[in-house]
Simulated assay, not measured.
Amino acid sequence: MKSFLKTALVISAISFAPVAFAVDMTGAGATFPYPIYAKWAEAYKAKTGSNLNYQSIGSSGGIKQIKAKTVDFGATDNPVKFDDLEKDGLVQFPAIIGGVVPVINVEGVKPYELKLSPDTLSDIFQGAITNWNDRRIVLNNPGMKMPDLPITVVHRADGSGTTAIFTNYLAKVSQNWKDAVGEGAAVKWPAASSVGGKGNEGVAANVLRVKGAIGYVEYAYAKKNKMISVSLKNRDGQFVQPDDLTFAAAAASTDWSKVPGMGTFITNAPGAKSWPITGASFILVYKAPENKAKVAEVLKFFDFAFKEGKKMAEELDYVPMPDATTDFIRKNVFTQVNTK
């Protein structure tokens, strides 16, 4: 009888061990990485019992939430400047790499069939090109018949890291865009025919709804919604299609360890195979967090993602952070956070 009771107690302890030490984490911010964070969270909960509640509210919202200390970590695709990190007592590290892709709703056009140069893309979003049969689009696509169809620009209505990546790219490739519109998480969109959408989800929904629309979303949203993406001419003059290989090619030349606060854009990167609108999503945590146990769990969660989440990321066409970069993050960023 005693032997049975002892065995039962041991089985009970093993069964409930993950739950006993489980920690609920909260995060908020970028919609860009939401699909992969959701997948990582599911796997992490299955392994540890700890749950992640992530609010996909946009990068500006994520920065506001972490500064207000209402979440354990903030997420942004618009990296915070090093001086601001220092001022607020925060650290920042990139968690995942992906691509922003222009998506269209033009009947008869196949995926990646439409080719756009940087100037043409900029002129479309600036409202200088207003119809799909404009000669500049036709010049990019000799022999392709484009319809006489007005263009509607779909953009983010909220403060967005996806917008920051997209406008950072446009400002690099078009002096006119840089001077007239600029870059950032929110800009004044100049096209007369335009409509806003909240989150990557909202932009995707509006592009699918409006005939003649063009918008920009993170690649996972384009793929999930079976949207029509375009091919873009990159810095080396090659037309390329978005996928994990072209995102990885764009990120290959970035040495994150040399950037203060690790915050940098990787748009318009060199390389014949590079997707020109590639970006990273960043995590923000306090060096001296109020709830040390929860932030310790956040670091464990991303360490798990770096070690065991690579295949999951690749399945969604994100690019995992390179091992050299995650080693740098563990040794030089995680160590700045006081979780004891």
Score class of each variant (00 low, 15 high):
6 K>V: 15
8 A>L: 15
16 F>H: 02
16 F>R: 01
16 F>M: 02
18 P>R: 01
21 F>T: 09
29 G>Q: 05
36 I>M: 15
40 W>N: 03
43 A>F: 06
54 Y>S: 05
55 Q>G: 07
57 I>E: 10
57 I>S: 12
58 G>D: 08
61 G>R: 08
64 K>D: 05
70 T>E: 09
71 V>R: 01
77 D>A: 14
80 V>C: 01
87 K>H: 11
88 D>A: 13
92 Q>H: 01
94 P>F: 04
95 A>G: 13
98 G>V: 11
100 V>Y: 05
103 V>L: 12
105 N>C: 11
114 L>T: 03
116 L>R: 06
127 G>Q: 07
133 N>H: 08
134 D>W: 00
137 I>W: 07
141 N>L: 14
146 M>P: 04
155 H>M: 03
160 S>C: 12
162 T>D: 13
165 I>Y: 09
167 T>F: 06
168 N>G: 15
171 A>D: 10
179 D>E: 15
179 D>Y: 07
180 A>P: 03
183 E>A: 12
185 A>S: 12
189 W>R: 04
193 S>A: 12
193 S>G: 00
200 N>M: 06
202 G>V: 07
207 V>L: 13
212 G>N: 08
213 A>E: 04
219 Y>D: 12
223 K>E: 00
227 M>Y: 00
234 N>H: 06
237 G>R: 00
238 Q>Y: 09
239 F>I: 06
239 F>E: 01
241 Q>V: 13
247 F>C: 06
258 K>D: 11
258 K>M: 13
261 G>L: 09
261 G>M: 10
271 G>Y: 06
276 P>I: 07
277 I>C: 07
281 S>M: 10
285 V>E: 06
286 Y>K: 04
291 N>Q: 09
292 K>G: 04
296 A>D: 11
298 V>W: 01
301 F>C: 01
304 F>Y: 15
304 F>N: 05
307 K>I: 11
323 D>V: 14
332 N>R: 11
333 V>K: 04
334 F>G: 05
337 V>F: 06
